[in-house]
Nucleic acid binder design. Structure first.
Lengths: 218, 218
DNA sequence: AACGTTATTTATCATTCGATAAACTGTTGG
DNA sequence: CCAACAGTTTATCGAATGATAAATAACGTT
């Protein structure tokens, strides 16, 4: 009855570093789906190991969660995006289109979005840090580049900083794009399939808007 | 040692309906802050009663949570908003400005936003229902009204339905405004204080955009 | 092939969880 | 004032939780 007994997976034994890396990457999947309140036992079941083994690699559940945050948040930003956004040989609109396509490719993943939302609700520090990153690396930069392109400034140094109102307009655009990802991957609502087109429209509307709204204060 | 023994609050006793209403409204505060995974014991502590008393009013924790959802989601929509949005004696822009100010007054509360996000992550049905409501009562209507105002149609019936792309543009605007609330009340980031102005800019930019983007497909 | 090292499991503990039953106490009508 | 009802607490259950210690089993070295 046991011809080719489906070989009970022959308890494979990983090196400490392999196991650790495997734990973290699968813990990301698990916690993204189940939330950080889920038990270490069900996590261990998902990992295919026993629960006490987790404590050989992480002092506590909280420490494991912190590592999950670190891994998820860090290195999400591609270094060449900085160069892309400030490449003044290209129209700003083109740069932003390319950037937002790449950026949303990176963060519009169910895992990332869910962990981002969970961490936001928990109020953990790393979430604030990330919001600051968006502000400085993307939104403020948009206005610097916009001023240079429109001839209001020649260098980054002399470009006047974005006003709070301008920044808010950029946030509304950015948030609108971000919310597209939430609707698609978290709410699982039907959305316009053509993500590039959604981005193009958002950028069009935004860039057209800041040209006028910032000069016609009332 | 017990002179004026701080009068242990003289165990007040509420009627069944009062107690029930009190439980639900305070449970909203509690779960919004602590998340739905929090224990019934800490909830009871927050309510100032013992934990088994909860089970006198709700068969299970899940039933209590469902009532919390119901109470939070229902009646959030003010009936006169329908009339406001379709009042063709006023410019669409004015109507939208007034609507979004009132709408955001209603939902930009820490409690509501947090419970909305929690329920979204949980994938509960009521969340989908709410997304559908936004779609039908607000966004699709914007295009109907836009077509009537711009002379493309005379009645609601003959106005062509919004295309998926148009709807997506409206979602980006709506999501951008919504995300302002998230940033302010969940992330507790600094935002532009002048909410009306943020709305005005979002609407300006959006209405200017749909006039052009929808006619110049490439 | 025997050894020692280390990854992994088994067994277990103290707490906390949702939930129930029974005891108690405030309130109301006669 | 007292009896009956309804609101509330005390006591407790079995299951699940995070965490630890001891036992086991796979691997590399000689």
């Amino acid at each position: 009855m046991n011809e080719t007994v489906k070989a009970q997976p022959k308890k494979k034994r990983l090196s400490s570093s392999e196991r650790r890396a495997d734990f973290i990457s699968k813990a990301i999947e698990f916690f993204a789906e189940e939330g950080f309140e889920s038990s270490t036992r069900s996590l261990a079941r998902y990992l295919g190991v026993t629960q006490p083994l987790l404590y050989r690699y992480f002092p506590s559940k909280d420490d494991l969660i912190k590592e999950v945050y670190q891994t998820v948040y860090l290195n999400r930003w591609q270094d060449d995006w900085d160069a892309l956004l400030t490449d003044r040989s290209r129209p700003l609109r083109d740069r932003l289109q390319e950037f937002y396509e790449a950026y949303t490719d990176a963060i519009f993943a169910r895992e990332w979005l869910r962990i981002f939302l969970f961490s936001g609700l928990k109020g953990v520090e790393i979430n604030r840090w990330y919001v600051g990153l968006v502000n400085e690396r993307i939104l403020e930069r948009i206005f610097t580049e916009y001023r240079i392109e429109s001839g209001q400034a020649n260098t980054q140094a002399e470009a006047p900083a974005a006003t709070p109102e301008e920044l808010e307009m950029a946030w509304v655009m950015h948030g609108g794009i971000f919310y597209y990802g939430i609707r698609k991957h978290i709410y699982e609502s039907p959305v316009l399939e053509d993500k590039s087109r959604m981005i193009a429209n958002a950028l069009d509307v935004f860039l057209k808007g800041i040209g006028e709204a910032t000069s016609s204060q009332n």
